[in-house]
């Protein structure tokens, strides 16, 4: 009797594995960029039309991919504006993804501009180099140019409090700012 029960254990183990698998969020796709050197970010500023190169930043920065057509971006926008006040030293760079220049400028006029630079990416080719799946997406890059973390979807006060600010503090401690 005892001998015959081990297939049952294997079956039980498989069921447990599948239950855990089913409870994972399939939308959570880990970015292969986290921990790697960030791709070079070169483009044109939406507002000043000057060339921008991330190699010139020399400090930690946030890259926030957004578009005027993106409702999640509107949701997180006030929290980004808040960040400019609570984290005055933090460089926030916008990646204006698959947008019309006029729409994007009007959107920033209306809702405020939290970005020091806004890189205009109408075709989404720059976004592709960053493995962008949708907007909004936010990356934290340290002073050495390494991607520290990535947040998919809108930043909420909870995510900022629990994840983004601790990541910044960690950078401060390591001298990565």
């Amino acid at each position: 009797m005892k001998k015959a029960s081990w297939p049952l254990w294997i079956f039980g183990g498989l069921v447990a594995l599948f239950v855990v698998g089913l409870m994972l969020n399939p939308r959570h796709v880990p970015s292969p960029l986290v921990g790697q050197m960030a791709p070079a970010l070169q483009g044109t500023d939406l507002l000043s039309e000057q060339p921008i190169d991330s190699a010139d930043f020399n400090q930690a920065w946030l890259l926030n991919a957004w578009a005027s057509w993106c409702s999640g971006c509107y949701l997180e926008h006030s929290h980004l504006m808040e960040l400019t006040k609570t984290q005055p030293g933090l460089v926030i760079v916008g990646l204006n993804y698959k947008d019309q220049a006029d729409d994007a400028k009007a959107w920033l006029d209306q809702h405020g501009n939290p970005y020091q630079h806004v890189i205009f990416d109408p075709t989404g080719r720059i976004g592709m180099d960053w493995g962008l799946i949708g907007t909004p997406e936010t990356f934290l890059i340290d002073a050495q140019g390494r991607v520290v973390d990535k947040w998919m979807g809108a930043l909420t006060p909870e995510r900022i409090e629990r994840s983004l600010l601790p990541a910044l503090q960690k950078l401060d401690a390591k001298g990565g700012r």
């Binding site: 796709v29 880990p30 799946i133």
Partner: peptide, 8 residues
């Protein structure tokens, strides 16, 4: 593709 989007 893998460099950008992962093995997924």
């Amino acid at each position: 593709m893998v460099q950008r989007y992962g093995d997924f």
